[in-house]
Design a binder for these strands. Structure first.
Lengths: 392, 392
DNA sequence: CACCGTTGATGTATCGATAAAGCACAGTGG
DNA sequence: CCACTGTGCTTTATCGATACATCAACGGTG
């Protein structure tokens, strides 16, 4: 591979001149420019070696996006992909590359809501966090006490967590590392959905979730079990639904949580079937924690010979594109998913750009740590979109 | 940030000893090990700086996965996510990280099938290819003459292309860079699907595609238009369907290609509606180039008051999980999608592991370029899975 | 007792680039 | 005529780690 030195020798100039031309620092003449570019072409120079430049500059231009394993789940979920699309868009604007770091979910409930400690996960994926060539990390739905976080903190990498419980605590750092948070008003959105149902006269509903933990337990869950979920988003949504029920003075026994296992038509059909054939009074409405689940539930209800919303009202969550175009357009809680990704990326990059602009060899001449302008609001709004899956 | 030097000073030993312990080279005593680990803990050493290690070793442990923009498309497509899951699995086994590099699709048809040259794309995303800290690149559905490829070639990075037309030509390099290919027998799979229909007595069918080019043109396409598609996979599938028709001596006018625009229920419904209300004889079967399209088409056909397979037979492609569990389980062409990802990753990593094992300071003592054992077969098989969306 | 292979630690050179200082030389104003 | 200010290019000193060579101490052998 040709290096700067080769180009310099060929052009008959110093390496610094070549570097100056290639980085367009402006400190060179037109003649020099020509000579260097010509020589670069001649020796087939492919541009500065990224590893060397990263070492010297102290910046890599790459951010790690940390996702929970299995990636399939993350990729297949329309809400997650829309989020990633937002992240990708902002990264592209800011000339930043994204490295995917997949983490196994920590086993056990969120430590702050449970007594059992989060178990250690396999070492191999954690080593990836140590060796990744990145300037910062963006965590998507990663538990706040995941052991992987310690590694990022040790490396003093700025970290931004999306949909993490950390935001609730108002903190702005993890250990010594800067920390940012972007969340969505999941609690409020869920509460609005449940209030809407109550306003329509519903008194008994079932909440459909895909899984509460890595190992799902199919069927109804008790409220303590449900609230011990490992997912912070899920927990906030459940609390929102529950709060509306409490507000209206309705008993929690009439708001059951059903674990379906997967975002999968067959699994949802089974769950709905079980629900509708169980003894005792049936729910008159379904609150699904995602649109995928809600759409599956609609299909299952129809297969069962019942009508949506006539026999059973359904409300989803996320407002994915398919929600609006479904056979029965879905009433759902809209959240600005793509924008969430953009905000997260923007907030993180604003921080890194301001604080580690570039390695400077003489003392700390870093810009004042001014509050970042145009930063994203920490909590994005949600709103209820009323369509045809709830009665008018 | 603490460096090796700090650890060495604290432990009162040389930097090399620290490096030896951390890299577990075995050339140190138990006492030394203790002292070093203790000192590392004490100064809060976060492990070797990845950029520095990459520079010195000449390897980064990261592979670039190049996907066409918009990423949303890639992430939302179940076939693509299954593929990425396979890639991720193999990478994890091999302790390799993946960097996502999104490329805008080159505008214009594949140059080898067209006279118009592939247009230049925006420069910004290409710069990412120059600056990415990677050892190799895995291209997913990237045109063989995409300008981005030149950059990888200049960097002499090993490249592996999946579902690219390159495999047809039997080449094993792009310029000076090693090149590998993994493809699936798309032609054969499509032909089997169409033959099956013909065997069932069908004589008129419509082929549903999402889009032939970046800017889709909704509605029927002529065969020359269809075959000028920018997607190599799509082209192979179209040729397979067509070949079955030709074999049976049926006219191509009875095999129409319909462009739906998106993998979207509403778009598909419109396309199916148009198809079924057009004057003249209607097709008796639908060949969809993906299961997502096929499942959407099934729903659209039912909405239209017709039955699958009674009134209209439907065959999909890919055999995504949802195909088996659909209301009418889908007849489709199965391809080993996850395995395709694993094979691609394995083939690429086998190459890089053998050929750039590590930077060696003295002369070329590299291992003989033995043919890689256990490498993936270059073309993976497909098979027709007959379920309920075609009559028995 | 001199010779030698082993073990464990250290020194030195380098990977490929960039930051900052240094240095010639031309043009200016007092 | 000389100090003074830019240009434009070069020299020097790193960035943080690893490959390889070297060296000291030691126990076993003929």
């Amino acid at each position: 591979m040709a290096t700067l030195k080769d180009v310099a020798r060929t052009a008959g100039v110093s390496v610094m001149s070549v570097s100056n031309v290639l980085n367009d620092t402006g400190r060179f003449s037109a003649t020099m420019r020509e000579r260097v570019l010509q020589a670069a072409e001649e020796v087939g120079y492919a541009g500065p070696d990224p590893a060397a430049a990263s070492l010297r500059r102290g910046r890599t231009g790459t951010v790690g996006v940390v996702l929970p394993l299995p990636l399939e789940t993350a990729f297949a979920d329309p809400a997650a992909t829309a989020f990633l699309e937002g992240v990708a868009r902002e990264f592209q604007r800011r000339r930043t590359t994204m490295t995917l770091l997949a983490l196994p979910p920590a086993v056990g409930p969120l430590a702050r809501y449970a007594t059992a400690p989060v178990q250690q996960v396999a070492d191999a994926p954690l080593a990836a966090l140590e060796k990744a060539v990145i300037d910062a990390a963006l965590l998507y739905s990663v538990e706040e006490d995941h052991p992987g976080l310690d590694i990022l903190v040790k490396r003093e990498l700025p970290v931004l967590a999306v949909d993490s419980p950390g935001h609730d605590t108002g903190r702005d750092r993890f250990g010594d590392a800067w920390a940012g948070f972007v969340t969505v008003d999941d609690f409020g959105g869920a509460r609005r959905a449940a209030r809407h149902l109550i306003g329509l006269g519903h008194r008994r509903a079932a909440i459909l979730v895909d899984k509460l933990a890595v190992q799902p337990r199919l069927g109804p869950a008790t409220w303590p079990q449900a609230l011990a979920t490992t997912s912070a988003i899920l927990r906030r949504r459940l609390l929102g639904y529950r709060d509306a029920w409490a507000e209206a003075g309705l008993p929690f026994t009439d708001l059951t949580v059903i674990e379906c296992g997967r975002n999968d038509i067959a699994a949802i059909r089974t769950a709905v079937h079980t629900l509708l054939t169980a003894p005792g009074p049936h729910p008159t409405a379904l609150l699904a924690v995602s649109d995928t689940l809600a759409l599956g539930a609609c299909a299952a209800v129809r297969d069962h010979g019942l009508a949506v919303p006539g026999d059973l009202a359904v409300i989803g969550y996320d407002d994915i594109p398919a929600a609006a175009t479904a056979v029965v357009p879905l009433t759902t809680v809209h959240q600005p998913t793509v924008e969430k990704g953009e905000s997260a990326a923007r907030l993180l990059l604003d921080h890194t750009d301001h604080h580690i602009e570039h390695r400077s060899d003489h003392g700390a001449s870093t810009a004042p740590p001014a509050p970042v302008a145009g930063a994203a609001p920490p909590e994005l709004p949600t709103r209820l979109v009323i369509r045809a899956s709830t009665p008018a």
